[in-house]
Nucleic acid binder design. Structure first.
Lengths: 177, 177
DNA sequence: CAGCTCTGGTTCAGTGAATGAACCTTCCCT
DNA sequence: AGGGAAGGTTCATTCACTGAACCAGAGCTG
């Protein structure tokens, strides 16, 4: 979503509008999604999202300023930073989950791309992010993501790494190719 | 969100990206939000959202083509149409609810603008629109919206009408002023 | 019947954001 | 010395958003 630089719908007295001021721009929610999937590094976002470099830099910066991601130095020489979801970023999981569920409902005969399960018991999450077996909401740390039958072949290393069953927020291992 | 005309992130194999193709543009989710609040008429959207006319026309058309809203003739002479959420549009309620709750979490010391309750029991809804007491998802038809302490004075008739406690999807009465 | 209003648009010029390609810098490796 | 990887910045072009103006059908008013 392209917001004007004056962020006009800040005027709206509505929490939804407030949320969209932060994450409503084009690509922003996809960056957060990848961050929750475990992507942390500039190049991995770039490869996985096929996003223009300038836009990615802008989004990472604004998300960091908003407190959704945290920029963290993970090696000094050469200096390298990674972007990690904060508590606020992790709190976007229900919204992303709901959007994904709606996107699946949108084309009903499509096979699911990924399924999400309670890591402790393997039960697939319900429509409001709860474990149907345990009957309570599951934090993203305890969600296991599994590839679904709707996924095609992986074309880049990041997509390939995200094919394996894995916990949300678990950092991507950058195997040295 | 400004999508290119070729909708590039259609390529993403992800239900979230699919959803954002439809509702990811700037203003789109706010139009759907208003539709769920009971706004149905072009002019009411215009007044309440303060959205440019051209953008509103474009959004209403694309949402109608996507099957999120339905254009319905409500009077023949002069011909007047209203836009009503379809089943697919109503299915966006959990995502909007989750986004709104996140927007509230974003500025924690702000007072809530509106609260949403299960109409049958009065319990405030959880982050996916489920009733915490009944333990199940609540259809938007059964959700009661109440004004919260964070709302300022209403400046237009539509905002004023949306101040009263009311069910979602209940059409706005256009009082003849 | 002239003129005004209400509703629901369309058109248009100006602006700002997204895009993709090219370039840059620092560091490491050989 | 040369090459490559990571993480950016810069730039011209394209595209969408913005706000104001304009338009058209229908009813109301005098």
């Amino acid at each position: 979503m392209a917001l004007g630089k004056d962020y006009d719908y800040a005027a709206q007295e509505c929490s939804i509008a407030r949320a969209l001021e932060i994450v409503g721009e084009r690509w922003t929610l996809l960056v957060v999604r990848d961050a929750l999937y475990g992507v942390r590094r500039y190049n991995d976002f770039l490869v996985h999202l096929k996003i223009p470099r300038a836009v990615l830099a802008a989004r990472l910066q604004s998300l960091t300023e908003a407190g959704v991601l945290e920029k963290r130095r993970y090696q000094e020489s050469p200096p390298r930073d990674e972007y990690v979801p904060t508590e606020l970023g992790r709190a976007l999981w229900p919204a992303l989950r709901a959007l994904g569920l709606w996107g699946r409902a949108f084309n009903p005969n499509a096979r699911p791309m990924r399924t999400f399960h309670h890591a402790d018991c393997g039960t697939e999450l319900g429509s409001y992010g709860e474990c149907r077996a345990c009957g309570r909401a599951i934090d993203p740390e305890d969600v296991e993501m599994r590839p679904g039958p709707g996924l095609g072949p992986a074309e880049d290393p990041v997509s390939r790494a995200l094919r394996a069953p894995r916990r949300l927020l678990q950092p991507l291992e950058n195997q040295p190719q």
